[in-house]
């Protein structure tokens, strides 16, 4: 009897130590960190077929041949506001470069709010609504802002969850241009 109690106690202890190690490994780690790595990297660009606020059609096929920065955003999200200046600065530096372009796709917002934001906040790059959220789904987005960079040949080369900076936009675009 005595031996059995001890044996069971030791067994339980081993399991608990294992559990404790697993838990300890996770202390201080953001549980979402890895979940937010895009599954699309290296894959062909998801298809999308949208219309910009000006009424121009835009799709994955129409963008082939250029590096495309696809930025999912909306007017109410605070991290989107945080990256706004970076987007404006990057666009100012690159808008005349025919080899790259940027497309803002609206995630979970109303057209009215978006149009007001575009007018008030100097959004001069093309912005498209995403009726039914199909493009957001096709990219596997989990929130906003999310940014994907697609190479001229139509491969998803880089992605960023959360606000971008000018430097990491440049890095992602450079990577896409290397892929070609």
């Amino acid at each position: 009897m005595r031996v059995r109690v001890r044996a069971v106690a030791v067994g339980v202890a081993v399991v608990l130590v294992g559990l404790a190690v697993v838990l300890a490994l996770n202390v201080g780690r953001d549980p979402r960190a890895d979940a937010n790595r895009s599954q699309l990297l290296g894959q062909p660009s998801p298809t999308y077929d949208l219309e910009t606020l000006d009424g121009a059609p835009v799709s994955d096929e129409s963008q082939i041949g250029r590096t495309v920065v696809v930025n999912f955003w909306n007017s109410w999200c605070i991290p989107c506001e945080q990256e706004h200046d970076a987007l404006v600065a990057w666009w100012a530096a690159n808008r005349d470069d025919d080899a790259v372009t940027m497309l803002g796709i609206v995630r979970e917002d109303t057209r009215r709010a978006v149009e007001r934001y575009v007018r008030d906040e100097d959004v001069t790059w093309p912005v498209a609504m995403d009726p039914g959220g199909r493009a957001a789904l096709a990219f596997g987005t989990r929130g906003q802002p999310e940014t994907y960079v697609i190479s001229p040949s139509g491969v998803v080369v880089a992605s960023q969850y959360g606000p971008v900076t000018v430097a990491n936009l440049d890095d992602m675009v450079a990577a896409a241009e290397r892929v070609g």
Partner: peptide, 23 residues
């Protein structure tokens, strides 16, 4: 549901869950 916490696509009312249901 990828942009909510702990809910399924069936239970959530976010646009992304709706899009997923449609898909």
């Amino acid at each position: 549901c990828v942009d909510c916490e702990g809910l399924s696509v069936a239970d959530s009312q976010t646009a992304s869950a709706r899009a997923a249901r449609v898909e």
